[in-house]
């Protein structure tokens, strides 16, 4: 089943000459799966998530969430929680008050879990939201996001400012609560290697478009690295799309290509003295979202 369906969605902020954040994006998000929304800075992740949550109206295209147009829709709002770093809370309520009051907004709210997490992460009950540090704010938002148990749970870069111990605890908490209460979770992050074990699917947004949307294990096998003599590698790369290329020395070169070699080809390539290596999902992401040919080495060479 599909919970979120986007078809050819574009979003331009402001007038016609404004910033184009989404460009004809189409994607279907699977029900009760954890999907990682990955993209470079300014790729359109937040715009996509806010459109799904019903905070933004797309300039073009259709968005359906629970089969409804999410923009200002009560049914969608009721079943969605959106967590990011800029959440606002009434300034007169203490943190403990907020945890109590949240139950009135979210029908599946688990107040006991909220209180247990609250004391585990040593948040101060009688303080106010604006008095928290960046990391503590993120921790507090995360508790709300998990305990709301909304059928559609959206985390937009939830770990900003958290130290690594808290981040690990957050991922573990999210996974355990998801196992006990499956729901559709969208999780955006820059740190794919940190979250990939948690995910079922990876959705890569690049320049406002759907660059790749696949189950995690298929992204893991998406590409392979080849290291070997230049001449040999160049022969292999003929008629193949090269995702990344780096010269190690004058004779040796490392390239990343799509993993479409047959077993026979693999044996042959290895026989030619080429070393085949796996390419991490994080590197696949980086190569797929490279702005221009070449990488940082080319920039540094010129200067």
């Amino acid at each position: 089943m599909t919970v979120v369906r986007c078809e050819n969605v574009s979003k331009v902020y402001g007038n016609k000459n404004g910033t184009q954040a989404l460009t004809g994006l189409s994607v279907n998000i699977k029900e009760n799966a954890i999907t990682g929304v990955i993209g470079r800075n300014g790729a359109g992740k937040t715009t996509f998530l806010k459109t799904v949550a019903g905070f933004l109206r797309p300039t073009q295209g259709t968005v359906k969430v629970f089969a409804e147009n999410p923009f200002h829709h009560i049914k969608v709002a009721e079943n969605t929680v959106f967590i990011d770093g800029t959440m606002m809370f009434p300034p007169t309520l203490t943190l403990k008050d907020i945890l109590q009051e949240a139950g009135r907004f979210y029908k599946n709210w688990d107040v006991q879990l909220a209180e247990k997490l609250f004391s585990y992460f040593a948040l101060p009950c009688d303080k106010y939201h604006h008095q928290l540090s960046k990391g503590m704010k993120s921790t507090f938002h995360m508790i709300i996001g998990i305990c709301a148990r909304s059928p559609l749970t959206i985390f937009d870069e939830p770990t900003e400012g958290m130290d690594s111990a808290v981040r690990k605890d957050f991922y573990r908490t999210l996974l355990k609560d998801y196992l006990a209460h499956p729901r559709t979770i969208l999780l955006s992050s820059h740190h794919l290697n940190e979250i990939e074990d948690l995910l079922e699917e990876i959705f890569i947004i690049h320049q406002g478009e759907n660059r790749l949307h696949l189950p995690v294990d298929e992204v893991k096998n998406y590409a392979i690295g080849l290291t070997g003599e230049k001449k040999v590698i160049e022969r292999i790369c003929k008629n193949r799309e090269v995702l990344y290329k780096r010269e190690i020395s004058h004779q040796y070169i490392y390239v990343v290509v799509k993993n479409d070699l047959s077993n026979g080809e693999r044996v042959q390539v290895e026989g030619d003295g080429v070393k085949i290596s796996a390419v991490s999902t994080e590197d696949v992401f980086i190569y797929l979202t490279q702005q221009k040919e070449g990488g940082i080495d080319d920039v540094l060479e010129r200067s």
């Binding site: 799966a33 996974l175 355990k176 196992l179 074990d197 948690l198 995910l199 079922e200 995690v216």
Partner: peptide, 17 residues
């Protein structure tokens, strides 16, 4: 798959695979 997901801190779909 759920026990494995919990044990190894991985997504249950991955464990099922």
């Amino acid at each position: 798959q759920y026990q494995l997901a919990d044990m190894f801190n991985i997504n249950p779909a991955t464990a099922a695979k």
